[in-house]
Computed example of a mutant assay.
Amino acid sequence: MLMNFLLLFSSISIGLTNSNWLVVMLMVEFGLFMVVFMSSNYLSLYSMRSVFKYFFVQSVSGLVLLVSGISVFMLNSPSVCSEIFLLSAILLKLGIFPMYFWVLPVYSESNYMILGVVGFMAKILPLYIYNFYVSLGPSKVMQIMSFFAVSSIAMGAWLGLPAKNYRTFLGASSVAHSGWFILASHSSSILFYFWCYGLSFLLLLMMMQMDHKIMMALNTLALGGLPPFSVFLGKLWVIYSWVENSMPLVVIMMALLFSVVSLFYYLKFSFQMMFSSSNSTFGFISFSLVLNFTSVFFFWM
């Protein structure tokens, strides 16, 4: 297991430090195989089924990304068709609207280790590819992708409202946060936001593995973007960068509106965890303190 993680980390590092398109795509697909190898330690057919779904979706998107990327990045002769296929493959790999159909089925059937890899580590290289593509300066593409990003944030809010369990909730959260990744790429703040998201997401999975109810509740609030937690700081930096670069305010305002809607299910699951704790009095006090502390920040804003 440790060797698989080291190989996955190495593939990501090589991909981030290499400018050759074929090498980058080789590392993307190598990381995909590492996910399959890591899941082989779990003999549950239920868990393996989610990995097969993920492997199929990522393989198809990887093939489309490879072919279209050769035209865009290597031959320097991008056509409208090749750019459409490139962006569609990135949307599919990240699970962004309208290519989010695989996210909830995979998340709802995966164990915590696979969730950590799929929800965090496997997103790094596709985001790196998109960030490099955005740096080439196609403004019309940024406008179209901003629409998909806001739609993904809205869809994440919609999918999370009827969620009954934590895995489904995490899938809806992934769809919403992936939309924020696109907006952060447009405003050159992707590194900070992705780090803030990854910290909260991995800590939440760790607490779920340990079944620590109080810390699960707090990290759920953190993932939802409530102040003063890390994701709130990440979104604040995205907003600042967006305004600083004189980008359309209506986009970021819509993203914030749908993020406020999604706070409903973050708070719902936080309540459930707090009051299912073995120490209900401590849970109630902690939750009250958190709400009071965050309300001061909301008033200050």
Rank of each mutant, 00 (worst) to 15 (best):
F148P: 01
L218S: 01
F52W: 14
P248E: 02
G171A: 04
L43N: 14
G225V: 07
L87M: 12
A154H: 03
I90G: 01
L22K: 08
P228D: 02
K268I: 02
S185F: 00
F85S: 01
S68M: 01
S135F: 07
S40R: 10
F56L: 15
V141F: 05
I129H: 03
G283I: 10
K53S: 10
K53L: 14
I153Y: 04
S71Q: 12
V60N: 04
I252Q: 06
M142G: 11
Y42Q: 11
V23P: 04
M48L: 13
S178W: 03
F56I: 15
Q209Y: 13
L257V: 12
F282G: 06
S286E: 06
W102R: 00
V243I: 13
S152E: 07
P248M: 09
A122L: 08
E109D: 11
F120D: 00
L236Y: 15
M38H: 06
Y240S: 11
V72L: 08
Y197E: 07
Y166V: 15
R49I: 06
A154F: 10
S110F: 06
S139I: 14
V23R: 08
S44N: 11
A154T: 07
F287E: 00
F299Y: 13
L2E: 12
W300A: 15
I239R: 09
Q209F: 12
G137T: 03
Y130S: 03
V23T: 14
A157W: 00
S189V: 04
L205Q: 02
F56T: 12
